[in-house]
Design a protein around this nucleic acid. Structure first.
Length: 879
RNA sequence: GGGAGCAUAGCUCAGCUGGUUCAGAGCAUCUGCCUUACAAGCAGAGGGUCACAGGUUCGAAUCCUGUUGCUCCCACCA
């Protein structure tokens, strides 16, 4: 059958992915092999595959496939994250578009819609990963809101509560008034905004003038409970302890001091509004000031404000300015540009707001997680993230666990009508606990209501590496004991603290063991202008379109060619093109071999014998290098080394040497020895390529020879080679250098490669013993002999310390040749001078290591002899 | 404001503890080739004061200091 000239991936990818699934090659169960485990960073159920996922998951698949070939029990656990706030926002939007308002639904009704949404869209991203070739154990697909997972999350909550790590309290949190929920610090995005700075006069209570306070938030004036100045501020020292009158509401508040005040900012006076500002809150607590909450959950002004009640905070801001102006209390307005926090999910301006929330004390629980990284138990790759990790962990703040949402794990706390609460796994357990804790309040008619809030998403995903193996509920089960700790985690640096650090905490707390040994942090995929690829910018190509265009293998190679760990990847489609071209190269190498006829009686030509011996060692040498790159997680280096091994060493050199000559327009048959060696080598390079390019390698594996059922490259053994013979490799380096020079000389003189040349050498050249036939074949040399004298009309080159003369007859341009050699002599003389002056430097000879000096001496000797021989050549040419 | 990192060929990046093979790779570019595996290819070639200025050293892309320019993280000023 005639094979197409180019590789066509689509049908092949579908065929083999299905075959792998049918054969269960991805699935893993504990056995006596060494496990190799990766848990996928679960993408949000709302997600569709983007370039970041492509990069991330390709790396994981490469690691998993190689581990599988190394004979390990490779287990890659896939799944999705319920992503409470992101998903709830999507569902709310969808319902909105159908004219359904969330507040008109009961919690159960809403959750029904949400689960329906998850069923419909939640699996899309995993299906997309299959197109990439991801060899996940799909039987293990997990979801952070699976029933078992829910049990684990709740158990952990109760347990942490009982340990005294979780507490409930009023705290100032980042409040999203659109989603009506608290969001974590990490979910607040700061951006530069232009506002008005209002200079507001606060009249002194004693009638002696006023203080001017600068604020961008006049709508919170009604919540002011003090004015703070710096204790050393001479302007106000005399006023401290006196009272001022808060505008609009005419409340008397004290003037206090706080060393945190910046004397140079504004007027040096800060209006203290503890309910609506982080700094003010701290000051309020320190000074035992009252807290007046003037803003409602939805961002409107609360009754406590006594003014502008019910108005949106931004409307109230305008009204407040107008009223201050009318009252003559507005000194001036200035344009002011500053950072304002917005909700990552809803883009609403974050309102610092006091509310009752659940918190996890981080101090104790984070310490083992800090130590695990500090003492090297866990490696961060690359290392540069170590410092940021350390800094963050040393300054960790308590984690606000609660979110005012419905989609998520509902907090397992139960309240009586008076707000007394117990924390328990179930309603029944809550009643029992209540009976114990509040025996005096308990009666049979007691009604306990569960907390309305759900947990922060990360409070479930931090259990991911444990819960996917059911390690919380059944802490001693066979799976968790076998697969945990997992080996490598591949994720984005953005979630190092959100997720990675917290998984380490959970691992240390609940397994007394780290969750993974290595954390490989990928870069961010950016476009050519360096912008992060995002849906909103529309600068991200659709990965599935890329796969369609370049093949999954091509895209995988393209993604990884230029992505060292932790460095951003400036994505360019030309990388995928390079990947596709590489697929094609492999395909055509196969076409060549496939087309060979074999003759069992044919003898193997000397050049082919040499090549067979050479490639064995070349492969061994390169395999070693590739393995080392893998050990160091240098993925793009490992790929590039594989690429060059295949393209340069196997295709350009090995195959060109063993390729049969043509006689009468037909290729000669190859010997069975050549065919066997070539097939073996081809299998080996396919194996090396498989983790990067799973599809084409599987296809060719089967095309190369008839295979039994389940004899697949995906489960083939990673090659093992004896140590390479470096002397032999060096001989071939010399040979290839000579070939290159001959081709170069031919090229420069415009002589066709078809015209055979004669080459002679005067001194003996040992490397020719094992490479002569190869040189003659690749450089199209008809005669390579040792002669007494350099032949006439020849160009001289020096390789491996020997002179070679290429006879060009009358095609040699004598004058050009003479000037070329003169130039070379000049260069070498300059070089010699440098070396000799170095050696003449006594301090160099004294201080430098002896071997370094020896090297210089050798350089000197070599250069002298080189110049000598060049001069001889020159004399020959001239006569 | 605090901290970390980066700066090497047109582009993306390697260069481990200073010294053969230290100035490299891939891509792009240029020249010549449709040579019966592959033009998505073959054979060659040209590209760099290693950001700048000092210092240590016999010797610096590599170590130290400063300058400039980027990037990221953390904290955010009413």
């Amino acid at each position: 059958m005639e094979l197409p000239k180019t590789y066509t991936p689509k049908a092949i990818e579908e065929k083999w992915y299905q075959y792998w699934l049918d054969q269960n090659f991805f699935s893993s169960v504990p056995d006596d092999r060494e496990p190799y485990t990766i848990v996928i960073p679960p993408p949000n159920v709302t997600g569709v595959l983007h370039m970041g996922h492509m990069l991330n998951n390709t790396i994981q698949d490469v690691l998993i496939r190689r581990a599988r070939m190394l004979g390990k029990n490779a287990c890659w656990v896939p799944g999705t994250d319920h992503a409470s706030i992101a998903t709830e926002a999507k569902v709310v939007n969808l319902l909105d578009s159908q004219g359904i308002k969330k507040q008109d639904l009961s919690r159960d009704e809403f959750l029904k819609h949400a689960f329906a949404w998850k069923e419909k869209y939640g699996g899309i991203i995993l299906e997309q990963l299959k197109k990439l070739g991801a060899s996940c154990d799909w039987n293990r697909t997990a979801f952070t809101m699976d029933e078992g997972y829910y049990q684990d999350v709740v158990k952990v909550f109760v347990n942490l509560y009982n340990k005294g790590y979780i507490y409930r309290g009023m705290r100032l949190v980042n409040w999203d008034p659109v989603a009506k929920t608290a969001v974590s610090d990490e979910e607040v995005i700061f951006s530069q905004v232009n506002s008005k700075m209002c200079y507001v006069k606060y009249a002194m209570e004693d009638g002696n003038g006023y203080l001017t306070v600068a604020t961008v938030r006049p709508e919170t004036i009604m919540g002011d409970v003090a004015i703070a100045v710096h204790p050393d501020d001479e302007r106000y020292k005399a006023l401290v302890g006196k009272q001022v009158i808060v505008p609009i509401v005419n409340r008397k508040v004290p003037i206090i001091t706080d060393s945190g005040i910046d004397i140079t900012f504004g007027t040096g006076c800060l209006k203290v509004t503890p309910a609506h500002d982080m700094v003010d809150y701290e000051i309020g607590i320190k000074n035992k000031l009252p807290i007046i909450d003037v803003i409602n959950d939805d961002g409107t002004i609360a009754p406590a404000a006594q003014a502008f009640v019910g108005l949106d905070r931004f409307v109230a801001r305008k009204k407040a300015i107008a009223q201050l102006q009318a009252d003559g209390l507005l000194e001036k307005l200035e344009d002011y540009s500053h950072q304002v926090g917005k909700s990552e999910r809803t883009d609403a301006v974050i309102e610092p707001k006091l509310s009752m929330q659940w918190f996890l004390k981080m101090k104790e629980i984070s310490e083992p997680a800090l130590n695990a990284v500090v003492n090297g138990e866990i490696n961060l790759i690359p290392q540069k993230f170590f410092n940021t990790y350390k800094y963050w962990m040393e300054n960790v703040r308590d984690w606000c666990l609660s979110r005012q949402l419905w989609w998520g794990h509902r907090i397992p706390a139960w309240y009586d009508a008076n707000g007394n609460f117990v924390v328990a796994l179930t309603h029944e357990a809550a009643i029992t606990a209540y009976k114990e804790k509040f025996s005096d309040l308990y009666n049979d008619a007691i009604v306990l209501k569960q907390d309305e809030d759900v947990l922060d998403t990360w409070a479930s995903s931090w259990l991911w590496p444990i819960s996917v193996f059911d390690g919380i509920s059944k802490p001693d089960n066979a799976e968790i004991n076998y697969y945990y700790p997992t080996n490598d985690l591949v994720t984005a640096p953005e979630i190092l603290f959100f997720w990675v650090a917290r998984m380490i905490m959970a691992g240390k707390e609940y397994r007394k063991a780290i969750p993974f040994k290595n954390v490989y942090l990928t870069g961010i995929v950016r476009d050519k202008q360096g912008r992060k690829m995002s849906k909103s910018l529309g600068n991200s190509p659709d990965p599935l379109v890329l796969i369609e265009k370049y093949g999954a293998d091509g895209v995988r190679v393209g993604m990884l060619l230029s992505s060292p760990a932790g460095n951003d990847l400036l994505f360019d489609e030309s990388l995928c093109e390079q990947g596709r071209n590489f697929s094609n190269k492999i395909w055509n190498a196969f076409r060549l071999v496939k087309g060979w006829e074999t003759d069992t009686t044919a003898t193997t030509p000397p050049a082919a014998l040499q090549a067979i011996e050479w490639f064995k060692h070349k492969f061994s040498e390169q395999l070693n290098i590739i393995n080392e790159h893998y050990e160091k997680y240098r993925m793009s280096d490992a790929l590039m080394a594989s690429y060059k091994l295949v393209w340069d060493d196997f295709c350009a050199n090995y195959l060109e040497i063993v390729k049969p000559a043509f006689v009468d327009g037909k290729p000669l048959p190859v010997s069975s020895e050549v065919l066997a060696a070539t097939s073996r080598y081809f299998e080996d390079i396919l194996k090396v390529l498989h983790p990067w390019m799973p599809f084409i390698t599987e296809e060719l594996w089967h095309n190369l020879s008839a295979r039994k059922e389940r004899d697949c490259i995906i489960v083939a053994e990673w090659p093992q080679m004896p140590a390479a013979d470096h002397l032999l490799l060096q001989d071939f380096e010399n040979a290839f250098a000579l070939i290159n020079q001959i081709r170069n000389a031919r090229n420069a003189k415009g002589i066709s490669p078809k015209q055979a040349l004669k080459v002679a050498h005067v001194q003996s050249a040992r490397f020719l013993d094992v490479t002569k036939a190869t040189i003659m074949k690749l450089a199209n040399v008809s005669e390579l002999i040792q002669s007494q004298m350099p032949p006439e009309l020849s160009a001289a080159i020096v390789i491996g310390g020997s002179d070679f003369y290429i006879s060009f007859g009358d095609q040699l341009d004598l004058l050009a040749e003479v000037s070329r050699i003169k130039e070379e002599i000049l260069y070498n003389q300059g070089f010699l001078k440098a070396v000799q002056s170095k050696l003449a430097n006594e301090r160099f000879v004294q201080h430098a290591k002896p071997e370094v000096v020896a090297v210089e001496r050798k350089k000197e000797a070599d250069t002298i002899s080189k110049i000598k021989s060049l001069e001889q050549t020159l004399v020959q040419l001239k006569h």
